[in-house]
Amino acid sequence: MRVILDILLLLPALLYQSALAAHFTYRGVGVDLLAVLLASIAINQGWLYGAVGGFAAGLILDCTFGHIGLYALQYMALGMFVGLVNERFRLDAIVLPALLTLGACAAREIVPAVYLYFARATVSWGYALLRVLLCAALDAALFVPVHLLLRRLHRWDVVRASLFPFHGRKW
């Protein structure tokens, strides 16, 4: 059931990221809702869910924007990395997962810059690094409420109570 819930959350995040997120950026700095959600799923559900979710969502973005592999690689690696680190070190509090998300999102943001460098585009690395860190900081800040919400939703009884309010009640 949690998997269905995750898919239901990933779909609007994917739509937002492909159709609306560009309108909510300032000088290229904005939040990546999809990355944040994938990091939270990877921590809650395990690295395999993060990797598979990241691969599927990234592939859809790749097909939309015409560069096969770029987003699938980034989001799959992000989901896998966050899940594996969490599994290894058992990060229970909210601060450490948020810091982990910050690192993963920064690493994810670097990938397009490296690609542009190899595509012979000019990249000012100091400025690029500043932007990467700002984006990652925003992602980490958004991670806290998203993760708390997802953790709460993953407790099945919360979802069940809202979907079936009269279930189990004696009349």
Binding site: A51, L59, C63, H67, I68, G69, L73, M76, M80
Partner: peptide, 27 residues
Amino acid sequence: VLCLLTALFGLSVTGIFKIPFLESAVS
């Protein structure tokens, strides 16, 4: 899969590799 994606991306950037049917279906 990650290694494969890296290779696919490299090939798609250079234009050697495309998956038009997948792109069409997703679109």
